[in-house]
């Protein structure tokens, strides 16, 4: 019967495929942040083209990547994880607990978070305080924290356009959202840039103040003006093009690719570009890292070469191919430090 023949053939094929695979050594495995993912992809591609075994790169998010990375040493665990923030103490503890203590931390470059709107809309220049006032769930008014009362930008400052506040941004699961809250909200509250937070800072002790701002200065408003637009930043770009009055919050690379239809919102007079993010004058930028499991270096074929490729001037340098993909490259001294940390397996 035909049916039997098909089964027989398929069974043979399956056996051959499994046996042929088992004999090969494993390729490099990389997990981690979706922000670092495109850069790692580019290096992996270059590495594969120049003769190495193509590494497997998977985007799991920074936290998810750390969890998998820290599970242990051995073939089934990844070798490298990308992160859009430094490793947390709790994650380091998890790693240590599972015997993954020899880790190298490599700073790759910077990523700017951009706020942008359609070129059909108004050009805007905001301060972090204004962004906080527009988007936080609770803001101080007359010395008290109240539910955000602002409906138009001109409610916050008469110099701002008289249009309703509509902001599309990432959901809470996104690293971009964490970075935004930390770099805008927390900075405004922590530095006491508003009278209310200044008072709180001076009256409370350090621990209580930290507890207070992580409780009351972290949530985005839920009453309409802030709209969670899902993890896909291209969706935000499309919505901005449809609604000139809305602003969107996303990674700089999406702004960079869509500069023909979107204009950046300047933060305290500084527009994001490769230079202003790199030298720190643009206020909302975060560092990008990758973490290397040093115990795997000698075991996994090509890992050392891959790392060397990643930190090479061709990739991470000022004219490297990662900058073409929108990475904001490191200044000379930091680049050298990163390169030596990566190649010499400096333990963090």
């Amino acid at each position: 019967m035909l049916f039997k023949k098909i089964l027989k053939f398929a069974g043979t094929a399956l056996t051959i495929a499994v046996v042929a695979n088992a004999a090969e050594a494993r390729e490099i495995k990389i997990v981690g942040s979706s922000t670092v993912y495109p850069y790692t992809q580019a290096v992996a591609e270059e590495f594969a083209r120049s003769g190495g075994a193509a590494p497997t790169v998977e985007s799991t998010g920074t936290g998810g990547g750390m969890k998998i990375f820290c599970q242990g040493i051995g073939e089934q665990y990844p070798d490298i994880t990308g992160a859009s923030r430094a490793m947390k103490a709790s994650e380091k503890a998890l790693c240590d607990k599972n015997g993954v203590s020899d880790i190298s931390e490599v700073l790759i470059g910077y990523d700017g978070l951009s706020i942008a709107n359609s070129r059909e809309g108004d050009a805007m220049d905001l301060t972090k305080v204004q962004i906080y006032q527009a988007l936080a769930a609770k803001v101080p008014v007359d010395g008290k924290l109240v539910d955000n009362p602002y409906e138009t930008w001109s409610d916050i400052d008469a110099d701002l356009p008289d249009v309703a506040i509509i902001a599309y941004g990432p959901p809470p699961t996104s690293g971009t959202r964490d970075a935004f809250v930390e770099l805008v909200f927390h900075e405004v509250c922590k530095n006491g840039e508003l009278e209310f937070w200044k008072n709180a800072k001076s009256t409370l002790d350090k621990k209580a103040f930290k507890k207070m701002y992580s409780a009351d200065c972290t949530s985005m408003r839920q009453d309409g003006p802030f709209i969670e637009a899902g993890e896909n930043d291209n969706l935000i770009v499309q919505r901005l093009n449809a609604d000139p009055d809305a602003v969107g919050i996303f990674g700089y690379s999406f702004l960079y690719e869509n500069l023909d239809s979107l204009q950046p919102v300047a933060i305290s007079g500084v527009e994001p570009d490769l230079d202003t993010i790199g030298d720190g004058s643009y206020g909302i930028a975060r560092p990008l890292y990758f973490y290397i499991k040093n115990a795997h270096r000698k075991v996994i074929v090509g890992m050392q070469e891959f790392i060397a490729q990643y930190v090479s001037d061709d990739a991470m340098g000022p004219e490297g191919y990662l900058s073409e993909r929108g990475l904001v490259v490191l200044p000379e001294a930091e680049l050298k430090a990163s390169q030596s940390a990566a190649i010499d397996a400096k333990m963090m």
Partner: peptide, 15 residues
Amino acid sequence: NAFIPSIENVGLLDP
């Protein structure tokens, strides 16, 4: 959803 830049290794146990 792994990123696979080459199709040299194709098998049931290859990413």
